[in-house]
């Protein structure tokens, strides 16, 4: 054991459901430590009843997002050194979603809104037809690719005040997905999708705050996707394709 006092982080972790309180833990500071490492340390060494969610630990599955010092983050890829303020880290569940317990938020509304936004692929060919050849260089494919690497982490949804202020709003992730499919030439569901995008919960709610774009861990730009939807729904409306 070292004789010098070990450096620790002053961690405050949300305990409870919608109502609860922050509980303090002193967690040993390590090199290259991630916020998920901190949460895991607490669960293993201080309180095994702490509820939180993760799976891959390498930024692929999108299940580890939490609110860290007031901003939503993917905790497995967020280094403590990046977010620590005056030796303190405050960790809560993702915002704009019901709290199940402690750090676990219920993502059901988030995924329901993907469905409402028609965020599912609608094939235009059956399995008996030959595969469509798509040039990776075509502008449509590039537009679809720009929005496609979403890991469904919910960070943008938690960062969006429009979601907070109008609960029916689909939110950045669902609309970003919608935009990806709108640009997918293989998809046959666009009229329904554009009608959904133009509906009450749709793209015209967005105020272009860009909190989603600033915080998306995948570097995606839902603001730009939603702006694309705003233009495309307007065109469809003028052409009389949607009402």
């Amino acid at each position: 054991m070292s004789t010098t006092a070990e450096a620790t982080i002053d961690v405050r972790v949300w305990r409870g459901g919608e109502k609860g309180e922050y509980q303090s833990f002193a967690v040993p500071r390590r090199d290259s430590q991630t916020v998920l490492d901190v949460v895991t340390w607490i669960q293993r060494h201080a309180d095994p009843t702490l509820a939180y969610r993760f799976a891959c630990r390498v930024g692929v599955c999108g299940s580890c997002a939490m609110t860290v010092n007031g901003r939503p983050r993917w905790t497995c890829r967020t280094h403590v050194s990046k977010v620590i303020e005056d030796g303190r880290v405050e960790i809560g569940p993702l915002a704009n979603l019901p709290v199940i317990r402690d750090l676990a938020a219920d993502l059901t509304p988030f995924f329901e809104k993907w469905q409402k936004a028609e965020g599912t692929f609608v094939p235009s060919r059956t399995r008996h037809e030959p595969l469509e050849t798509i040039s990776p260089e075509s502008p449509e494919r590039q537009a679809a690719n720009a929005a496609i690497e979403c890991i469904n982490c919910g960070v943008c949804y938690a960062a969006c005040d429009t979601v907070r202020w109008s609960p029916e709003y689909f939110g950045p992730a669902a609309l970003n997905r919608s935009w990806s499919l709108v640009n997918d030439v293989r998809d046959a569901g666009n009229l329904k999708r554009l009608a959904a995008a133009a509906s009450n919960g749709g793209c015209h709610n967005c105020h272009s705050h860009q909190s989603c774009e600033q915080l998306c861990p995948q570097g995606l730009n839902p603001t730009a996707s939603i702006a694309g939807l705003k233009r495309r729904t307007m065109q469809a409306y003028i052409r009389g394709e949607i009402s």
Binding site: W14, G16, E18, K19, G20, E21, Y22, T67, N69, G70, R71, P72, E90, G92, P93, A95, V99, A158, A159, D161, H207, S208, H209, Q210, S211, Q214, L215
Partner: peptide, 24 residues
Amino acid sequence: MSTQPHNTAYRSDRLWLAAMVHRV
């Protein structure tokens, strides 16, 4: 003691402030 699980530090980000100043 707090009864609110989320604080909203992202509201001090420049683009958020820009949107709010525009609104106000």
